[in-house]
Simulated assay, not measured.
Amino acid sequence: MGSAPAPFFEIGKKAKDILTKDYYFNHKFSLATISAAGLGITATGVKLDDLFVGDISTQYKSGKTTVDVKVDTNSNVSTTVTVNEIVSGAKTTFSFKIPDQKSGKLDVQYLHDHVAINSSIGMNTIPVLELAAAIGSKKFGIGAEVGFDSTSATFTKYNAGISFNQNDFSAALILADKGETVKASYIHFLDPLNRSAVAAEMIHRLKTSENSFTIGTSHALDPLTLVKARLCNNGKLAVLCQHEWRPKSLLTLSAEYDPKAIISPSRLGLALALKP
Rank of each mutant, 00 (worst) to 15 (best):
K183N: 09
S120P: 00
A132W: 02
Y110V: 10
T217L: 13
K14Y: 04
G63F: 00
V46S: 15
P127G: 02
L250S: 09
G147P: 08
M1E: 08
Y186M: 11
M202W: 12
I215A: 09
L51M: 11
I121R: 01
A32T: 15
K139C: 12
T92Y: 11
L31G: 13
N233A: 14
S103I: 09
K28H: 06
A15Q: 03
F94P: 08
D49M: 14
S75G: 05
P7R: 06
S103A: 15
L19H: 02
K260M: 06
V46W: 05
N74I: 10
H204E: 12
I18R: 01
I86A: 08
A261G: 06
D149Y: 02
K248R: 15
K105V: 13
P99W: 05
S75P: 08
G63L: 01
D149L: 10
T80Y: 01
G235W: 01
L51I: 14
V198T: 13
K248F: 14
L175K: 00
L253D: 04
F29Q: 02
E244F: 03
K228F: 02
F148E: 03
Q242A: 14
T252N: 06
N26I: 14
G216C: 04
A238Y: 00
L48K: 12
Y23E: 12
T42Q: 10
K139E: 12
L251H: 06
L19W: 00
A134F: 05
G141I: 03
L237T: 12
S120A: 07
A132S: 09
K97M: 12
F140W: 07
T93D: 13
P259R: 01
R195D: 08
D149A: 09
L206I: 15
E180D: 04
L111H: 05
A200E: 02
S62N: 14
S249P: 09
T125D: 14
N159F: 06
E244T: 07
T181E: 03
G147D: 08
A132H: 02
Q59F: 04
H27I: 13
Q109F: 09
Y257S: 14
T73Q: 01
L111K: 01
F213K: 05
V182Y: 04
V87Y: 01
I121L: 02
N124C: 01
D107N: 09
D22F: 04
V146N: 08
E10C: 12
G54M: 00
E210S: 12
T225M: 03
T58D: 03
D258K: 03
N165K: 07
S137H: 03
I18G: 06
S185G: 05
T217Y: 13
K157C: 15
Y23R: 09
V239D: 08
I126S: 14
E10W: 06
L226K: 00
G38D: 15
D17M: 05
T151L: 15
L272F: 07
A273G: 12
A229T: 11
T154F: 09
S78Y: 07
Y23H: 10
G122E: 01
T44S: 12
K178F: 06
T79P: 03
C241N: 12
A261W: 00
T44N: 10
S95R: 10
I187R: 03
K139I: 10
L39F: 15
T125F: 07
S120Y: 00
A271E: 11
K105E: 09
L231C: 05
S170H: 05
L237E: 02
N74T: 06
K47N: 15
Y158N: 11
S150I: 10
Y257V: 15
D222E: 07
V146S: 11
